[in-house]
Amino acid sequence: MARVVVDVMPKEEILDPQGQAVANALPRQGFEGVSHVRQGKHFELEVADDVDDDTLERIAENFLANPVIEDWSVRRVES
């Protein structure tokens, strides 16, 4: 088994009101100096050893992310 991490983020040009809400809430709690927050998704997949990179890329592109509004990255991590 291998562990694969897929990170999905809203594209830079896509408004991220959730990230903005988080950023706006920080000063109210006394945390200063954070000017910008973007909120995305983090997936951890346990995959069989014979699942190749191409398959992982298709999982990310066709399902975990929506390429119209999101960017994504796929990486294998030490298990």
């Binding site: 809203p10 408004l15 959730q18 119209v68 509004i69």
Partner: peptide, 17 residues
């Protein structure tokens, strides 16, 4: 229909949340 590719674009979180 947008997710399925029958229509272009996507629907995202309301700007006002």
């Amino acid at each position: 229909l947008c997710e399925a590719g029958l229509l272009p674009g996507a629907l995202t979180r309301n700007a006002g949340l």
